[in-house]
Design a protein around this nucleic acid. Structure first.
Length: 263
DNA sequence: CACCATGTTCCTTG
DNA sequence: CCAAGGAACATGGT
C-alpha cells in the first residue's frame, strides 16, 4: 500500500486519518473474512510476520471495490487506498460505515447463524426470558450476528410468527421454526449475493469496477424478487393473499402478513 | 416541503 | 438490570 486518503475522518475512528494512514502504509492485503456484518481484512507488513486486522462495516450504503487506473473517484469516496496500479475504494453515500482497526465490537456479537454454535437450543435459551418483541430482538446482534431489518421480517414471515410476539411467549417449537427460517433466508440471500463473488466474476458484471462487497447495480432487482414481505405493504401475501401490513417497531419498519403471522 | 431509508451507538425515561 | 424510544450520524429518493 503506497498511500491512503481518508476523505471522511469519522469512518476510521478512533484513529486520526494520519494515524490510520501510517498503520496501513507499507502493508499488503493477505486475506479477508467476515463476522456478522463486519468484514475482516488481514494485512501484513513486508518485513513482519505478525498480522494486522482491519475491520470494515458497510452501514446501509457502503461499497468496497477496486477502481481501475485513471477512473475518477466517486462523489462519496470515504477512504481510498493506493495499491499500485489500482485503488481500493470505500464509497459510502451516507457515511454510516466504518473502516477501522478498533475491533472491540466483535466481542459483543452473538453466534454466526450458519455455524454449529447456533443451535435451536441455544437460540431458545437466549429468547425464553426476554419480554422484548421478537422482531426487535432479532436485530440485536448479541442474540445472533448478521440479521438486519429486511431479514428479520422475512424470517418471521417464513416461520409464520408475528413480529409483535414477545420472545418469552414463543414455544420451543416456534423458536425452532424461526431458527430454521433464519438459516433458510440467510442462505438464500447469500446465494443471490454470490452472483457477485469474491473471485473475479464481478469484473464482467460491471464495466469499470471490480465489486467485492456491497450491492452493485443490477444485483438489487434479482435480490428483491426473493423478498416476500419486506417493503410490500398493501401487496397480497404470497401464501394467503391477505394484504401485507407495515408497522413501526423501535423506529424501524416491520412488514408482515396479519393472517399468516397471528399473535 | 415532508417523509422515508439495508445500521449502530448513545442517551434518557420508565 | 431490562426495555422502549428518540436522536444522532449524512445524503438521496419519492
Amino acid at each position: 500500500m503506497r498511500g491512503v486518503q481518508v476523505c471522511r475522518p469519522k469512518i476510521v475512528r478512533p484513529d486520526s486519518p494520519r494515524a490510520f494512514a501510517a498503520k496501513l502504509t507499507g502493508a499488503r492485503f493477505v486475506g479477508v473474512s467476515r463476522r456478522g456484518k463486519h468484514l475482516l481484512f488481514e494485512l501484513r507488513m513486508l518485513n513482519s510476520p505478525k498480522p494486522l486486522f482491519l475491520m470494515g462495516h458497510l452501514g446501509m450504503t457502503g461499497r468496497m471495490y477496486l477502481l481501475p487506473p485513471q477512473s475518477p473517484l466517486p462523489k462519496h469516496a470515504a477512504v481510498v487506498m493506493d495499491l499500485g496500479p489500482r485503488r481500493f475504494v470505500f464509497e459510502d453515500t451516507r457515511y454510516f460505515g466504518r473502516l477501522t482497526f478498533d475491533r472491540r465490537v466483535l466481542a459483543r456479537l452473538g453466534p454466526e447463524p450458519l455455524s454449529v454454535r447456533f443451535t435451536p437450543e441455544s437460540f431458545w435459551s437466549s429468547l425464553k426470558h426476554s419480554r422484548q418483541a421478537i422482531k426487535v430482538k432479532l436485530l440485536d446482534q448479541r442474540l445472533v450476528a448478521g440479521i438486519g431489518n429486511i431479514y428479520a421480517s422475512e424470517a418471521l414471515f417464513r416461520a409464520g410468527i408475528s413480529p409483535l410476539k414477545r420472545c418469552c411467549g414463543l414455544s420451543q417449537s416456534q423458536a425452532a421454526r424461526l431458527w430454521r427460517a433464519i438459516r433458510h433466508v440467510l442462505r438464500q440471500a447469500i446465494s443471490c449475493g454470490s452472483t457477485v463473488p469474491l473471485n473475479f466474476a464481478g469484473a464482467e458484471a460491471s464495466a469499470d469496477r471490480l465489486f467485492y462487497f456491497g450491492t452493485q447495480p443490477g444485483m438489487i432487482d434479482y435480490y428483491e424478487e426473493r423478498l416476500r414481505v419486506y417493503d410490500r405493504a398493501g401487496h397480497p401475501c404470497p401464501r394467503c393473499r391477505a394484504p401485507i401490513r407495515r408497522l413501526a417497531q423501535a423506529a424501524r419498519s416491520t412488514f408482515y402478513c396479519p393472517r399468516c403471522q397471528r399473535r
